[in-house]
Simulated assay, not measured.
Amino acid sequence: MPKDPHSDLPAGPRHVAIIMDGNGRWAQARGRPRLFGHHAGAKRVREVVEACPDYGVKYLTIFAFSTENWKRTQVEVAGLMSLFRRYISKEARALDEEGVRVRFIGDRVRLDPKLIKLMDNLEELTKTNEKVHLTIALNYGGRDEVARATKRLAQDVADGKLRPEDVDEETLPKYLDTQVLPDPDLVIRTSGEARISNFLLWQSAYSEYEFIDTLWPDFTAEELGRLCQGFGNRDRRFGAVKI
Rank of each mutant, 00 (worst) to 15 (best):
P182G: 03
E210V: 09
P173F: 02
E210T: 00
E210Q: 13
N198F: 13
Q179H: 14
P173K: 03
D185I: 06
E169I: 07
E170S: 15
S197P: 07
L200N: 06
W216M: 07
E169D: 15
E210H: 05
Y209M: 14
T214V: 15
N198I: 11
A205F: 01
F199C: 10
L200P: 03
T190D: 08
D185T: 08
S197G: 13
I188Y: 12
R195N: 08
R195F: 11
G192P: 06
Q179L: 03
Y206S: 13
T171V: 11
T178L: 14
W216Q: 06
Q179P: 00
I196F: 07
T190M: 10
S197H: 11
S197Q: 11
A205W: 00
D185K: 05
D213R: 14
P173A: 04
I188R: 12
S191P: 02
E169R: 13
A194D: 05
L172M: 05
P182E: 03
T171Y: 06
I196S: 02
E193S: 06
L186T: 08
L201N: 10
Y206G: 09
S207L: 06
K174T: 11
L186F: 10
A205V: 07
D168M: 09
S204E: 01
K174Y: 00
P184S: 07
E208R: 06
S191W: 05
I212M: 10
N198A: 13
Y206R: 04
Y209L: 15
W216T: 06
S207K: 02
D177P: 11
L186I: 09
T178G: 13
D168N: 15
E210K: 12
I212Q: 09
L172C: 00
V180A: 09
L176A: 08
D185Y: 07
L176N: 08
S207H: 04
V180N: 06
S197W: 10
L176F: 14
V187N: 01
T178Q: 14
E208H: 03
F211C: 01
S204D: 00
W216K: 08
E208F: 02
T190Y: 08
S204V: 09
L215E: 12
L176C: 11
D168E: 10
P184V: 03
E193Q: 13
I196H: 02
W202M: 05
I188M: 12
R189P: 00
F199E: 07
Y206F: 15
D185S: 09
F199Y: 15
N198H: 13
R195K: 13
K174H: 07
V187H: 01
E208L: 03
A194C: 12
E170N: 15
E169P: 02
E210C: 12
D177A: 14
T178F: 13
E193V: 07
D183H: 06
T190Q: 09
L200H: 04
G192S: 07
A205K: 02
L172I: 14
P173I: 04
E169H: 12
G192V: 05
E170T: 15
V187G: 01
F211E: 01
D185W: 05
T190H: 08
Y175N: 01
